[in-house]
């Protein structure tokens, strides 16, 4: 079925139309074409959240997925990361959890928290 959607790759927000044969129109750049195809076949979103951290500076540590995550599995992802916690020092880019729900996507620390 034909899909009408808005590209979320950059702030420009192009209106995309994706046909049944996955041809994309309305995009202003190749990234929009890739996004349109992805959205029609396997929609994904980058997910950011927080986990508890043992630190003298903060209670929560920001984390994010290493790649856009399958949209349908996001509620399960939020449940899966609820019990996670970290201990300072942590550094951005370190993996807290690998291969989340079998997707091959990792959960990464977003901030340097030294103590």
């Amino acid at each position: 079925m034909k899909l009408q959607t808005t590209c979320i790759i950059c702030p420009r927000g192009c209106r995309l139309t994706v046909e049944d044969d996955l041809t994309v129109s309305g995009n202003s750049c190749p990234r929009g074409e890739r996004y349109g195809r992805q959205e029609a076949t396997d929609p994904r979103r980058s997910v950011s959240s927080t986990i508890r951290i043992d630190s003298t500076l903060v209670k929560m540590c920001p984390v994010h997925t290493s790649a856009p995550f399958p949209k349908a599995k996001i509620p399960a992802l939020m449940e899966a990361i609820k019990p996670l916690s970290a201990k300072a020092p942590v550094h951005m880019g370190e993996a807290v959890c690998q291969n989340l729900l079998g997707t091959g996507i990792d959960l990464l620390i977003s901030e340097d928290i030294e103590r």
Partner: peptide
């Protein structure tokens, strides 16, 4: 920036999309 855990930062400065805390940590480093 440290409370803006979502992504959408850094495209102009670093040419890639970062979360707020990552943007802050890069500058702090």
């Amino acid at each position: 920036l440290t409370q803006c855990v979502h992504s959408g930062f850094g495209l102009k400065v670093f040419g890639e999309e970062l979360t707020g805390p990552e943007f802050a940590s890069r500058l702090a480093r």
